[in-house]
Design a protein around this nucleic acid. Structure first.
Lengths: 349, 349
DNA sequence: TTGAAAGCGATACCAA
DNA sequence: TTGGTATCGCTTTCAA
């Protein structure tokens, strides 16, 4: 035994199987830096040399180590995303649009969910920051002081999604939840409903829901002759659909003349419709139901849910564009992008 | 002006605002390596020193650079996930469970979606690998030769999700799609339906659907007196629900005695139910409909969809456990974990 | 057009 | 219990 190791120029001590740039360099008979150039600025290398290097890259199956490169370039090619939740598919399309557009520019998405908790968000943030992301997107606009301090020190572009905070940390892509609440409520009144109530999930879970309910309240206060009727599901109710069912019950008990409910999401609305059917109430004749989100199924399955449509994918795509510009040091024209929303009238209200 | 920079020991040349380990060391009057120890093996440092270092860490708001550390430890603390799609919320809970459990162990999730395309998967894989993930999970089991070669060279633990491939790359967490197709079909025949058809999305999009349809076909061949009836949505139809609607139409045209359709997903089933209602067919009396997935809404909204439930979150959680074990060099007892499935009988079939 | 040397921020290994 | 030194894989800077 004791076969002498072939003196592959000090390459002998590597214990991983990753091919390094040095390996490529040796095979192509050039220096490391030339390999680097071929990969990042091919025009700076003579065609002949370049071909030799590319051949070596192929032969060896070389995959560059971005993390190592990041050490000198100070750019990890990673964008971190803090998403409130992946369930209910609210943000799924946003994440999709985001990752798609980022990847097209060579960036990867580091994803984490916060379950709507600012404390968890802060904690997760500090973990994500250890990877030195070049940028950050988040779907919440309510942050702890710790989180804000971390973000400040990180000095990376931050984009807040799905709202347009009055005082954004940095920039934002979203729409006015307050405006959307107003629009739908106005639409319902225009349709002739007299006593709309608002049904939301457990209290304070989400600032966006609050904004929508405020939009509702604003319109009711202005145009209707009764105080706003806002129902919040009890803490015990966890599922959104269950919350919608119980919300409807509560609304009808408390205000028997309720003729219409505006739900904080389509899932909640489905719960309400389900409960209405259970009670043999006709929708919308006996009780009208409006949702929020325009999820896949809202328009189908005989549901015909009147709702508000948000361009989730577009939010992700625009956020990617914005953050890419910022990461490349450009100063984008707009720090806030309003993608709007749309009231979608269907049969349920 | 021209205030002389305080000679913070060569720290003067840094152009980022990140606090480095060296900065902490200086402030705590120790060497870098001691700071490193305090952070990773506190018991090896005298309590007094440790306190001084921790104070410095806090004061400076130091956040370690894992990417730099990865260079020597050869562990990036990153796990990459290749997900077929985030839409339809099929995999959302899996991603959630995965990222939650990984994070608890200090790992982050690098996420990308492949849109069910093996070619795209291979391409994305090579990009993800540049970040040197410590492990990889993927929801597809159909890979290109390039992808397999990359995976092989990467030499990291790989977990395939949502199926139990006969020949896994490495390990897997899922269940038998074939078995699930068989189980639901058997259930439908037991319920007394005589002529069940299978409705899937556009051809070949997903190996799992194929397995389910094969399970269906196996049972029909064995127990029924007619050849399997399998409908595939035309390429033109993109939405799953639309596919369900058109699938129902096709089935009834081609085989008017069809009394039951087993759909490849709940979304498809909703489309079918929707179409049935449009045609004034009663569900399940005139036509029964079964789905697959047990999405949030399946049990609600008067839908009462009979379906197959998959423990999506559990798949993610178990996958995290498995990959964590493998990354720590343990050899887990099981390379494949079967989380099973469950036929959920409701009113639609 | 190409290369040599010096880091980037952290950890491993061996000393003190 | 603590520290010095040599890397990790890559890019930058400066020369040739």
């Amino acid at each position: 035994m004791a076969t002498p190791l072939s003196p592959t120029t000090k390459g002998a001590k590597a214990r991983t199987n990753w091919v390094t740039m040095e390996d490529v360099a040796i095979r192509a008979q050039v220096s490391k830096i030339t390999v680097s150039r071929v990969l990042r600025a091919p025009e700076k290398v003579r065609a002949e040399t370049r071909e030799r290097v590319l051949a070596a890259v192929r032969d060896l199956g070389y995959v560059p180590d971005d993390a190592a490169g990041a050490l000198t370039t100070r750019s990890s090619k990673i964008v971190a995303a803090l998403i409130s939740t992946l369930e209910g598919s609210t943000f799924a399309s946003t994440v999709d649009g985001l990752s798609r557009n980022l990847r097209a520019a060579g960036y990867q998405l580091l994803l984490a969910t916060t379950d709507y908790s600012p404390e968890r968000e802060a904690e997760i943030l500090s973990m994500l920051l250890r990877q030195r992301p070049d940028g950050l997107v988040m779907t919440s606009s309510h942050h702890t002081a710790d989180a804000l301090a971390l973000l400040k020190r990180a000095q990376i572009p931050v984009v807040e999604l799905w709202e347009l905070p009055p005082k954004p940390i940095d920039s934002s892509v979203g729409f006015s939840n307050f405006g959307a609440g107003k629009a739908m409520t106005g639409f319902l009144l225009d349709r002739g409903y007299r006593r709309p109530a608002f049904i939301g999930p457990r209290a304070g879970i989400d600032g966006r829901v609050k904004s929508r309910s405020e939009g509702y309240a604003a319109v009711v206060s202005e145009r209707a002759a009764f105080p706003p009727r806002i129902i919040t599901a009890p803490e015990a109710v966890t599922s959104l659909t269950d919350g919608g069912a119980s919300g409807l019950v509560t609304a009808l008990e408390r205000w028997p003349d309720t003729d219409c409910v505006f739900c904080s999401s389509d899932s909640v609305a489905l719960g309400a419709i389900s409960e209405a059917r259970r009670r043999n109430l006709r929708v919308p004749e006996d009780i009208a139901v409006a949702g929020y989100g325009d999820f896949d199924l809202a328009g189908n399955s005989g549901l015909e849910l009147t709702t508000v449509r948000i361009a989730g994918t577009e939010i992700g795509e625009r956020a990617a564009e914005l953050i890419l510009q910022r990461m490349q040091g450009e100063r984008p024209q707009h720090k806030s992008i309003d993608v709007g929303f749309e009231v979608v009238p269907r049969a349920s209200a």
